[in-house]
Design a protein around this nucleic acid. Structure first.
Lengths: 343, 343
DNA sequence: TATTTTTATGCAATCGTTTCCGTCATTGTG
DNA sequence: CACAATGACGGAAACGATTGCATAAAAATA
């Protein structure tokens, strides 16, 4: 079952013209007489001619497609980023192909290669937690494929990057806990090898230091899979609860970890914030209807998607190879709710 | 900045063969000698040759792309459906292009046309709440473009459809409320013109009827935009609360409406379920950590995406036009939590 | 009027791949 | 030995669109 589209040949035949004439008329070339142009335009409009984008892609060696590599989009943060991406991409005439790594290095590599062989014009990438070897991106980048990283960026590739001020986000959240009277603040974070983990950890440490609180490695927990497995979150929470120093609060460094930790604490009937306070990085619109409502660091996800896409299209459409790249740093926002305020 | 891929011509030139020979060797044609085939295969492997999918698409008149039309994917239900879609599509060698209507008829039409002109091989569609005129789908369907509807389906097009048992979902939820002692059950639902609204309303009415509870139009609220605007949900909740018959419970018919209603009730400090009970259709994994935890009708969203995609690929790849189409009906599951259980 | 310039259009190559058809050499058959 | 059958490969068209070049007619110039 094929559905046959109208081609330029059909128009040419119907009007007794050459395809080249039709093509030129359609683009309003000046070397076509006004009457021929009108004739062609009118007829094309009448039969609803639409150029075949595949033929165009082949000719122009560009697909007008952007590939997106994220860990997953059933995640408020990333789905908002993707909304931002689409809002710009569609406006600029690109379509968007999304692939999910589910935090697996192997799938990330596969997806990336898939997209590249699909001839995407550029890639928008947020690394998986497992990724330490970036050679699949280096390879493509060296070949000239435009890439922009967002959120979880790759330090070793020189290109545009878009992140939030993770340091300040974690710093503000930690200071808030300290100012609310909490003294022993644990930290559950993602895989130690991704950029956001490092930056958030640094912000956390800085806040402790400024407030003369000793940094204690024993209550900083890393989730190798970024919380994709609820078990790793639960184990982290358990270790914190069982820790001899009796932490009174937790800073959770990602959407998944925040929600997973909250869910586990609730299941175990551990009262928040009485027994332990919780501040999470999350973009969930539901943070307010949780029990208790969750104090959170929220990120301008939609904007991040927009900026990243604009930057990518800038690279794609630039005539000459860019030599200067920048890293856009967006602001986070701390929203204080019940989970971090002592009764 | 272009990144030049290796073509069959490069191989032909390097090996002193014709492109036709290389092409045949690569597909293991029997009319190529074993040695030539090996030569070509080895060389292609060595230089990592990948066929150009765009050229293939042009030749074969198929894009190996599936278009998805949904209202939005920053919605747990749809993001799960899309995960199901991708899981099948990628396995079968298709890529997926997603577009969001944001419940706007106009954008749905635009997106659909966009996808069609992008030469997708088929369409996976869930209608927007605004849509009453389906002619954009009729047009494409008549031209032979394979379409499968899921969730919010179009009755007037004969094709495969995948839905859940909306009638039973609403019926079970309503019966549960009745059995829990609630007597005056309001219903907040989506736009009256989409299939799920009609089916869920019917299930709700059936349950009332069987329990000899009078159906009261005054406490059934429709949200024209399916809850895309929080205001319409809030107005519906207000009307229910102010209704002279003093409803004691609400059945919310969608993800957005459930969460929106809950959020509003919480904001207004209206206690659930003491003042009013709430049962919602939602696939949010966070239903359990809401305050109170939310009794919900959850749908096999992932599976729905899988089934729909399999059905679509079946149509796409069938040699002869199909004449028999079916509607797959999946089961919903009622999860009872705190929001519908009297203290 | 003869020549140049301009205008409007057609022809053909191109993008990367497949595939129909033709061709050459080798082998088999009568 | 003559001819057909087979095997192995090359040439070229095709998919739909663009574009450099050629060319015809018309207009402008000498």
């Amino acid at each position: 079952m094929k559905y046959e589209a109208i081609t330029i040949k059909d128009i040419a035949k119907a009007l007794g013209l050459a395809t080249s004439t039709v093509s030129r008329a359609l683009k309003g070339s000046h070397e076509i007489s006004a009457e021929t142009r009108k004739l062609v335009m009118d007829y094309a409009g009448k039969i609803n001619y639409k150029p075949n984008p595949i033929a165009l892609s082949l000719k122009e060696k560009r697909s007008r497609a952007i590939g997106v590599v994220v860990c997953e989009f059933a995640n408020t943060f990333f789905s908002q980023v993707i909304n931002g991406i689409e809002s710009i991409a569609y406006d600029r005439g690109y379509h968007v192909i999304i692939s999910q790594s589910h935090e697996s290095y192997e799938r990330e590599v596969l997806n990336t290669q898939q997209l590249a062989s699909r001839q995407v014009d550029g890639l928008l990438v947020s690394l998986s937690t497992e990724t330490t070897d970036m050679s699949h991106f280096h390879f493509l980048h060296d070949k000239g494929l435009p890439i922009v990283f967002f959120d979880r960026v790759c330090e070793t590739i020189e290109t545009h990057k878009v992140i939030v001020d993770n340091f300040k986000g974690a710093y503000d959240a930690t200071c808030h806990l300290i100012n609310s009277g909490f003294k022993k603040i644990a930290h559950i974070t993602s895989s130690p090898n991704i950029s956001i983990t490092i930056e958030r950890l640094a912000g956390y440490r800085k806040a402790l230091e400024e407030n003369k609180i000793l940094y204690d490695e024993g209550i900083v927990m890393f989730c190798a899979h970024g919380g994709m497995e609820q078990a790793e979150i639960e184990s982290a929470v358990m270790k914190i609860l069982d820790h001899p120093s009796a932490p009174d609060s937790i800073l959770a460094a990602s959407d998944r970890i925040s929600l997973g930790a909250m869910s586990f604490l609730k299941e175990k009937n551990i009262s928040i914030p009485a027994k332990i306070a919780l501040v999470g990085f999350t973009n969930s619109q539901q943070a307010g209807i949780f029990s208790p409502s969750l104090t959170s660091v929220s990120q301008p996800a939609f904007e991040m998607g927009q900026v990243a896409t604009e930057k990518l299209i800038e690279i794609i459409e630039s005539k000459t190879p860019l030599s200067k790249f920048d890293t856009s740093v967006l602001k986070t926002k701390l929203v204080v709710r019940e989970s971090s305020v002592m009764a």
